[in-house]
């Protein structure tokens, strides 16, 4: 795969990097050289992968889930478990010194 100067400009925007014109030109050349090298990874597609490709290093003891309550509350809609809920917001007590009505 290769990238154009326009692609590089767009990547710079995604990465929030300001790039001068000369940097843009240089980065386009560099990224294409690096991507040509990185593309060799595709050659690996035909070779055999280990059975458990997620495991790097020694086997870890699985975490026991027996103490966990399920399902995760965040998988439910907030209004289903919020103590108070109005128009998309949680209703909480006002902090000390703040008048909930907004009056001075």
């Amino acid at each position: 795969m290769s990238v154009s100067a326009r692609d590089v400009q767009r990547i710079g925007e995604l990465a929030r990097l300001h790039l001068e014109d000369d940097e843009l030109e240089r980065l386009t050349l560099d990224l294409n050289a690096i991507l040509r090298h990185v593309d060799s990874l595709r050659d690996l597609g035909s070779t055999k992968q280990p059975e458990d490709s997620s495991q790097i290093g020694p086997k870890l003891t699985p975490v026991s889930h027996e103490h966990f309550e399920g399902p995760d509350k965040l998988h439910e809609m907030p209004e289903d478990f919020a103590p108070e809920w109005k128009e998309g917001f949680f209703i909480v007590p006002a902090p000390p010194g703040v008048n909930p009505s907004g009056d001075q």
Partner: peptide, 21 residues
């Protein structure tokens, strides 16, 4: 954000760009 992060050096920018891509 963009101007501040423009202070990164050339190699750091290159790697951030490759990683973002």
């Amino acid at each position: 954000y963009e101007l501040t992060r423009g202070k990164f050096g050339a190699e750091v920018k290159r790697r951030i760009m490759l990683g973002t891509y």
